[in-house]
Design a protein around this nucleic acid. Sequence first.
DNA 1: ACCTCTATTGCAATCGATTGCCAAAACTCA
DNA 2: TGAGTTTTGGCAATCGATTGCAATAGAGGT
Lengths: 329, 329
Amino acid sequence: MKRLTGKDVARAAGVSVSAVSRAFTAENRLNKATRDHILKVASELGYRPNALARSLIKQESDLVAVVFGNTDGMYDKDFFNRLSTALQKRGKWALQIRSEEEENIAETLGKALMYPVSAAIVRAGTVDLQVIENSKKMHVPLIYTGLGPTVKGADCVWLNYKRGGLLGTRHLIKRGCKKIAYIGGIEGITADTGRREGYLEALGEAGLQPHGISQTRFDFESGLQAALNLLQSDNPPDAFYCVSDAAALGVLNAAKSILNLRVPEDVAVVGSDNMPMAAWPCFDLTAATNPIDEIVQNLMNTLEARLADPDQKEMSVVVEPELVIRGSA
Amino acid sequence: MKRLTGKDVARAAGVSVSAVSRAFTAENRLNKATRDHILKVASELGYRPNALARSLIKQESDLVAVVFGNTDGMYDKDFFNRLSTALQKRGKWALQIRSEEEENIAETLGKALMYPVSAAIVRAGTVDLQVIENSKKMHVPLIYTGLGPTVKGADCVWLNYKRGGLLGTRHLIKRGCKKIAYIGGIEGITADTGRREGYLEALGEAGLQPHGISQTRFDFESGLQAALNLLQSDNPPDAFYCVSDAAALGVLNAAKSILNLRVPEDVAVVGSDNMPMAAWPCFDLTAATNPIDEIVQNLMNTLEARLADPDQKEMSVVVEPELVIRGSA
DNA sequence: ACCTCTATTGCAATCGATTGCCAAAACTCA
DNA sequence: TGAGTTTTGGCAATCGATTGCAATAGAGGT
């Protein structure tokens, strides 16, 4: 039950291990007939060179560690999906690493760094200096994403969360909403901090006061519950700006399906992310974008630039959200 | 920019490379004081043994290739997520491999088999003998999932798709529906074949004829479009059995949000998978289950059994769907 | 003081592949 | 035919870690 090796192929083809290796590397150091023969024998046996043994000698590998702090969210699943597809298109393989707790990322990444990855992409809501420290010591380039701009010591591709909150809330104000609630996420996560900041600034511009701020877990159930609480209070809001699409869909469910309110007449709802689901007829959700393709593309560019020149100074790319206006606000 | 190695630690700690290695393996072959010193120096430098170099000599690795034929579906994303979390809990790392086209799985898996994975888990809708052949030749255990029972030469964990179609359609019949349409997926994919078989069998039991069979792409848009076509025809169906939850949600959108029909009074809808979304108030979808946790658990059991004894005969586990009845039918 | 036994550590071979170097073979051209 | 050049392919060192074996030191017994 041993793995097939180059030695087996060499024996079968009647050549040396070096010849087998040369048949598989692009080197022009082999007679065409010999190479063809070796490749034929190898393919019959089903042999492929061991990428790890290769990475030992070549001092490089095609593995990229992809670390997620919390993947429960629908957005993150989608994001991860596109990210690893993009990596694979560029000849890289995603070594997937999850951390149930946002705090354990350092430890989890540490274990994964035992594999000779050429880089690590970390998607998390908070910066962990230990993570940066670890990867620095291992000489593994680190790219953060899903964070605000303040990552010192690592490359970063981030969304201008504040602008999302700003655009979404301004839109609600322009519609004439006066009692605008904020459905937030976990405190300390930059997606929440930034969007709330934008929300508050937009209210300030219009001289309005925040009308209910709920901190939740970014997800559907949280959004639904928070909206139920607020809408059934003595002084219900007339609009919601939500930290995620998932939460916004929860709010829509609370308002339309449970409380039989009209959207946007009784209550207007704006989400953040603009996932494909936001466009479904039953939701028709107005949302600030969090464009996966653009972010992934920037991640790929950053990765390639970093691998090409490991010593260049830190790179930081900002992606700007837009507001997609649909029927919910 | 070289990776930190055991030699660096050895030099810094004033010991041999062997001693460093012994400090990191559980061996009791080192003086406690020496070991502590080495570990301290290693941790200061941020050193971790190279898992690949280790796997060379140990002839085993903690990598598991996870291959997906088509990951666009919402269900698959969720599935993958849980699968890799489960693997990680057992000390395995998921090396993620995607194949845009179902036909290219063999080729894609082949490339990934260059890494010394201890096993490959393949989730696909069709069996590819080449895939089985390849992994056999490389001596890599292969576990198929998402397929009907007829996989020769590989272990398999599958859902009894037919039973899902049977339960769902019987339920619609019991409700009094007479004109039941089938919203199917891509032909040849066992999830479609099996569920349609169950649908037809249930109709046969009741002496009913199929009322419209649409083959689509398993997804929301397909379901919506197919339902629009059928519902706007001269002789619209009074119920839908759908090959996936995503398609069922498309049908619900067409019926409720676009055509303003009442569900289940005008048209009843049953889905397959029972994703968390099916329970959202706005959908309240009756669905046959496709229990991710149970399937993943069985995959883990199969994997462990196979790794424990590579020579035992093929294993095949069947997971039985149930029907979760909600408001849509 | 001498011998035995054990604990601790280093040396060197090994895993599978790559590659610099060298030698044999083949080819060129006068 | 022979000198010079090129092509071809094997030998052996190498990557980073592990491990069998051997060497050394120290403990304990008589």
